[in-house]
Design a protein around this nucleic acid. Structure first.
Length: 336
DNA sequence: GAGTTTGAAACT
DNA sequence: CAGTTTCAAACTC
């Protein structure tokens, strides 16, 4: 998983890479933080206006825009006073601590995944070193973290290479990538713009006149799109109903565990029948009914419907038995 | 899980 | 700018 960029003010603690002689500087503004590199990188002069959101820049010590370290904002401490802190001397940044490990720690009570509106999937890049826009993490201005990529350079350990790659990208596409993506439209030819290959469809927006797609079916009145939407909605409702039924069954079982003292023989293998109460039965029936509805809505043949229902019944029974067994074990362990 | 398809990004 | 290649994700079997 990659490290999402979040507003710096949501962060209490920081897990930056231990940088020798590096200095963190807070800006007077809100979301961005400045971090000075240990080594100036004079060859790199990023365009300040076009960096990904959350990117932070810092001039090297000594004044002037000599060199920069570009890091996601959450790597940098939310510093109030004083405005200048030397990382290497700060007790907050133990030199032995790895960046990527700490980056996953909950920050200010909020984990990294929770601080972003769209948790990104881990990338699987093998050849791009995660330094090209093929890499979703890099394209979104994020470090790779918990990804499955090989030979990854999209991290603080390869800051120089990363900076060069950012500069190359900016040279190639002076506009910000995320802005550009939806102002350029798609070029789909075979997907009908109704699969996730299509950037518009993936972003859940209609194709527009700026797209150059062929055979587009991703427009408001498209019957194919409507059918797809209905199917997706129906599937979502089914999943929600099933989840609700299962949650209710679990809740009934755990509720029962809380307020009953099952009759358990000390050495016998029999489980207490008292777990099968009216409430548990009702919840079980709801689960079975949901399976029946699901089979009906997906037009399953009767044999398959029966199989699904029986399977669900088996699952319900197993959960009741497991709960009863657990209660028995718990009870035995406290000699009740 | 392996192989195929797809379209954006990168390259020429 | 157009055509081609590379790439990683989406998809299918």
């Amino acid at each position: 998983m990659s490290v999402p960029i979040v507003p710096a003010q949501t962060i209490k603690q920081v897990a930056p890479k231990p940088l020798t002689s590096a200095t963190v500087v807070t800006t007077t503004q809100t979301q961005q933080r400045l971090i000075m590199p240990a080594t100036p990188l004079p060859q790199i002069q990023p365009n300040f206006t076009n960096l990904p959101p959350g990117t932070v820049l810092a001039p090297a010590p000594g004044g002037g825009n000599v060199g920069y370290a570009v890091v996601p904002a959450q790597y940098v401490t939310q510093l109030q006073q004083p405005p200048f802190v030397t990382l290497s001397s700060s007790p907050s940044f133990p030199a032995s601590t790895g960046v990527q490990t700490q980056a996953r720690l909950p920050l200010n009570g909020v984990s990294a995944a929770e601080t972003t509106s769209r948790p990104r999937k881990p990338c699987n890049c093998t050849k791009s070193q995660c330094l090209k826009l093929y890499c979703d993490c890099f394209a979104n201005g994020e470090f790779c973290n918990n990804c499955n990529c090989n030979n990854c350079f999209n991290n603080l350990e390869h800051e120089t290479e990363r900076l060069k790659a950012i500069k190359t990208c900016l040279d190639r596409n002076p506009e910000g990538e995320s802005d550009r993506r939806h102002s350029k439209g798609c070029n789909c030819k075979r997907s009908g713009c109704l699969k996730n290959y299509c950037e518009c469809y993936e972003a859940k927006i209609m194709c527009s006149s700026i797209c150059k797609c062929i055979g587009c079916k991703n427009f408001e009145e498209s019957p194919e799109r409507k059918t797809l939407m209905h199917l997706a909605d129906a599937a979502e409702v089914r999943v929600q109903q099933q989840t609700a039924a299962k949650t209710k069954l679990s809740s009934q079982i755990s509720d029962l565990l809380m307020r009953t003292t099952p009759v358990i023989s000390s050495g016998g293998g029999r489980l207490p029948y008292t777990f099968v109460t009216k409430e548990v039965l009702e919840a079980t029936c709801e689960c079975l009914l949901e399976q029946a509805k699901k089979a009906e809505q997906t037009h399953q043949p009767q044999v398959e419907a029966e199989r699904l229902i029986l399977e669900e019944f088996g699952h319900c029974l197993m959960r009741i038995i497991n709960s009863a067994g657990k209660a028995k074990a718990d009870c035995a362990s406290i000699n009740c």
